[in-house]
């Protein structure tokens, strides 16, 4: 049962990573990067590293996502390339 959850988490990891890199809307890219970090934290916890997963969830999903949004608010919302 545990490997089934991990496979779903890995698929979610790849999906959010691809979304964060490919989407043109920078706010959506920041949200996808935050979802990537949260999935990463869940994977760390499923591997037994509670402390690492907790730090990843707090810093990656809690603080860095907010910093991404603050940085997007200082520039244009869409990429030009």
């Amino acid at each position: 049962m545990n490997w089934l959850i991990e496979i779903v988490l890995y698929l979610l990891l790849l999906t959010t990573a691809f979304l964060a890199l490919s989407v043109k809307d920078l706010l959506a890219a920041a949200a996808a990067a935050t979802a990537f970090t949260l999935t990463m934290a869940l994977l760390f916890i499923s591997m037994g590293a509670i402390d690492v997963g907790f730090t990843e969830a707090v810093v990656g999903a809690g603080i860095v996502g907010v910093y991404f949004i603050a940085a997007v608010s200082q520039t244009s919302r869409r990429t030009r390339d």
């Binding site: 402390d51 707090v58 809690g62 603080i63 907010v66």
Partner: peptide, 21 residues
């Protein structure tokens, strides 16, 4: 237990940043 000064401080900062956002 899991956690510590860094994680707790980041959570406290998240509360203040949420209010400021």
């Amino acid at each position: 237990s899991p956690g510590g000064g860094f994680q707790g401080g980041a959570l406290l900062a998240a509360g203040v940043i949420l209010l400021r956002m």
